[in-house]
Design a protein around this nucleic acid. Sequence first.
RNA 1: GCGGGGGUAGCAAAGUCUGGUCAAAUGCGCAGGACUUAAGAUCCUGUCUCUUAGUGAGUUCGUGGGUUCGAAUCCCUCCCCCCGCACCA
Length: 966
Amino acid sequence: MEFKEIESKWQKKWEDAKIGVPERNENKPKFFLIWAYATVSGFQHTGHMRGYSYADAIARFKRMTGHNVLLCAGGHATGNGAIAKANKLAKKDAAMVEELKSRGVTDEQIEKMSDVDEFINFFAKNYVKDYQSFGFVGDWQRFMLTTTPDYNKFIEWQFKKLNEKELIIQKPYFANCCVVDGPVAVDPSEMDLSKGGTAEQTDCTLIKLDYGKEQGISQYIVVATLRPETMYGQTNVWLDYDIEYVKIKIKPNNGKEEIWIASSEFADKIKYQIDEVKVIGKIKGSELTGNYCYAPSVDREIIILPSKFCDPNIGTGIVTSVPSDAPADYIGLHDLQVSEELCKKYNLDFEAIKNIKPIPIIKSKGYGDFPAIEICNRLGIKSQADKEKLEEAKKEIYKIGFHTGVMHDNAGPFAGMKVTEAKDKMKEHLIQLGHADKFIDLSEEVVCRCGNPVRVMRRDNAWFIKYSDEEWTQKSIKYLDEMELYPDAMKENFSSAVDWFSDRACAREGNWLGTKLPFDKNYTVEAISDSTLYPIYYMVSKYVNEGLIKPEQLTEEFFDYVFLERGTKEEVANKTELDVQLVDKVQKDVAYWYPLDINLGGKEHRTVHFPPFLLNHTALLPKKFWPKGIFVNFWVMQAPNQKLSKSKGGAQPIPGVSEKYSVDGMRLYYANAASPFADIYFEEESLLNYKAKIEKLNSFVDEILSKELSSSQGKMDAWFESSFNSSLKRAKDAMEINDFKTTSNEIYFNMNKLFTTYFAREGNNKSLVQEYLPKWIQTMGLFTPHIAEELNEKVNKFFENKETLVANTSWPKVKEDKINKEIEVSIELIGEIKKDIKDILVLAKIESPNEIKIIISPTWKYDFFKLFKEILEETQNPKDIISKVMTTNLKQYSKDVMRLIPACLKDRSKIPFVLLGDKKEEELVNSFKEDIEQEFKCKVIVTTAKDFDHPKSGNASPGKPAILVE
RNA sequence: GCGGGGGUAGCAAAGUCUGGUCAAAUGCGCAGGACUUAAGAUCCUGUCUCUUAGUGAGUUCGUGGGUUCGAAUCCCUCCCCCCGCACCA
């Protein structure tokens, strides 16, 4: 099959027919959906297409069920991703140029793309092309970008409104910042970074150990710790003998000038968090070794000792030693205590070292006073060189200590307190006494895209959106009950995400793409914060894109009127010089299309994008405009546990894969391979199977059309109509709740099977085929729209119907009156009989039977099952059931009844689903007598248990006649 | 740590909310058959174990308990896997 040809043929027809470009029509129910827009910084991949194809299937279904459907998309370019990549192109970055070229981008185009705007526009266009090539039908005329002047006006308005509601606040913030470029996003996508995307901020406590005075100023050895609660167990200090440390003149938060001794790396970090930091001198580790400093908490002098595990890049490069609870500390001490030689090398008093004893501080579950010693013994850790085991030991002790630990008696005011509680209290306590300070470090080295290091910086007046506002949060959480959230788990999930979502730094200093904060032009609104309320802007972008509205006309009054109905259209028209009818039109569009019915996005949006999306709506718009639904789709994985990602490679270009697997094949794969709420692996074999399925559908329809059909009815007709309508109903019901897997199962496998069975059993009614074949094909319009149109065209021609587009038709109506479970069961029953005969022939080793007797069940069994089913409605208790049955005239069969009841209770499948009755069953089997005779090439006699006295007759049961082969 | 999701037959994956037609849909794979000169494709049948002239029995849905006449489904224990955690749609 020429997939490519078929795809573009129908895509063009849909476009020409303006299927995706709806007109406002107040008499028709609307459905407005979007997918969360993608960052414009590279090609889209198969993961994006998964979610989008769900959105398109929903849109097509809603369109076919009488809705006016608006599906829109846009592109997000806020931040510096595009800038960085455009710059790379300007520098002729070989890898990137090569990547673009490999996807058919011309040299000329690449040249142009070193300009950021060109870069963004290129990909934006590319995205729309991808959507179209995947058969998504939407209103692409409304496509918008977050970096255009009109969008900026919208965001300015949004922030003015937030400010009006007093939801914008300023406070200090510790941001991850490039030392040159300012704030960056530290996250695994590494959009802003060249290294360190998985780094996290770690909250350290700096402990200051008194080390005399220098120039009359107090001097401290400064150590960084994550476990301030263990300070009562300090026995010594560790540093690296061979490293040169620095003396830092600093004015920490207590306002007094001090001198800190720490690594020079630390000096470089702390200057971004504490003002007035100056390196005034150097001091070697060897010069400090063996000296004493005064430790708070333990209130005495402790010795400074050398070790190999002090990394100048972590913390201050100096650590305090708590050998009772820190395995490395214990082992470090142990190494020295067993080696006089080593002590001598460092010029240490061996006896003094040997006298250092761990101090018990925490009692943890399953451990004694010295967990570190226990675990080192258990894991067989012998020296500092056992780095891996030490790490494991540290984690284990930290974990168990944190969760189960209780502070020992020697922990001053914290004695008896749980570690979870003592940790923060101890920290505050030490800070208050001036013995400690805060410091935020990064867990690994982070390097900006520009090549400069990323540091944690304190920003004093950072702008925040006050998502912590209790009333606002509660109002929004309460509203979740009225929303449709997919999957179900989102209901639980999402309210905690909304609750958890606290104040968000919403703007960055520096030169970024995006919108300048209206009340502080040094700040640019950050990427999450300018993509929350945007679905409503699709109502405006249409007219901007058409050139009917200029960005400067998008004034506060304009948005106030069209979104909030504040003021009058005349005033707005006057002030903006817009046509009053246009202002009116935009307002009416908003009133018609809003709220958004579905916002669809990948699972990564659950905690970062969707909460503020909802929160901004509830804060700024009237309740009637709050979003109605969120749909979260899961990922396409490259290999186990590896998400597809633009930056990490592995994702294949859309045009390439769609050619290889066909668009319909891929869309069917997405719909049918798994629930939308499970990650799937992109498996070639599977995809090719689905592609083959599309081809089979095509040849199956050809085959049907080539059949000689008759104008008379057949005995399979009623069955087919009933089964098809049942299936259609299941498909529709499932689609109403976005259960794509069930819907696609019905359409592509079950309905397919119904047709094959129908023809296999000599169904050949032309008018039936003429009615149902097109219906079946229409249902394919949701997931495999191209082949659906192709088949529809073919079938219309064949039956000389008028031309239609599946995309324009109504979803086939379920003919409830045709659904007849008795008839469906009947055909199954005949099938069962045939299967039983086959089994018997094999088991009895009869090759060509002379005669087959089919014996219909005794009449009383029908009565029994009828009664039994009635009783089951009332009671499930075996005793009650038996006594009830025995009060009827069935008691004459008490022996059989007593056997049947327990068996049927145990295995409910023994109870016939539908009871035909003996007369009907006999008639039915008789009507298929010839059919069976033909199949087994022998005489068939249909009789009843009453008329045929034979041991087998007693075995017959309703829906399961006895069979005797001779 | 905080928050969330999940473990189902050879594989993938429904079923779990609303307990009983669940030995468990569907697809793939595999086996046999039909068609074909043949292969492929397609179609039919089978695919937990045992048994049997079919409508029979047993053991299964991560582990171990419990509730119930009845549990893949409800409750508890434990084990394992995955995801999000903030200036990254």
